[in-house]
């Protein structure tokens, strides 16, 4: 870093992309096109409030309450709204349930569409070219790299997200979880299990 030197008394120069973002923000705020308070609210939401714990709550409820499970599979957008969870861009949420016959897995081949309201910001691997290209082509191989081996009889169904439709995988309830309350069940639901690259109850 050319400016990171104790002899230089001035402020440390931010990186090129940091300055480009700052420039855009300055222009848009100056023109009144964007409200700094709205930006602050969005940052606060995604840095501190939204994350996989919300999706886990939904899955735990579906496992414990068959009527909720039915509503979730019929219309996930409405069902998650019952728990106070809603999307920002008017996107539609679709819940897909794993069964002994079908394992579901989610990708966005276009860019990185993801159920933000339920899972927060996607992990880097979800956004990588490698995952986006291979999830559809060779899902079992990708799953194996995540440490997931499915029985031969269980087929894999890959769902390609769009800006309008975001998918949530409802993983299978782990054996031995009978009698657990919703909070304890939610602890078994990992982020990856709701993307379909993991199984519930596996280590986080």
């Amino acid at each position: 870093m050319p400016h990171d030197h104790p002899d230089h008394p001035h402020s440390l120069l931010p990186s090129d992309p940091a300055l480009r973002v700052k420039a855009l923000e300055t222009i848009l705020v100056r023109k009144g096109l964007v409200d700094p308070a709205a930006m602050e609210e969005i940052l606060d939401t995604y840095e501190r409030k939204v994350g996989p714990h919300l999706g886990a709550k939904v899955v735990a409820r579906a496992w414990s309450d068959p009527a909720f499970r039915d509503r979730l599979l019929a219309d996930a957008t409405a069902a998650i709204a019952e728990l106070g969870i809603s999307g920002r861009q008017g996107e539609h949420v679709v819940a897909v349930e794993n069964t002994p016959n079908t394992h579901n897995m989610v990708v966005c081949t276009l860019c990185s569409c993801y159920p933000w309201p339920l899972l927060g910001i996607p992990p880097a691997w979800y956004k990588s070219d490698a995952y986006r290209a291979r999830a559809v082509r060779e899902p079992r191989k990708v799953l194996a790299e995540f440490g997931v081996t499915l029985p031969d009889g269980q087929k894999v169904r890959v769902w390609d997200s769009t800006s309008e439709v975001r998918y949530l995988v409802v993983p299978m309830r782990p054996k031995g979880s009978e009698g657990l309350d919703e909070a304890a069940l939610a602890d078994l639901v990992t982020r990856d299990s709701m993307i379909g690259t993991g199984l519930a109850g596996a280590s986080r």
Partner: peptide, 29 residues
Amino acid sequence: RFDEPWQAQLFALTVAMSEAGHFTWSRWA
């Protein structure tokens, strides 16, 4: 959840612009 603060700022700026109606999220995607 971001590697660098500018990534978070960029994310918030983009979502705020879309929510303010300057472009739809489909257009963005």
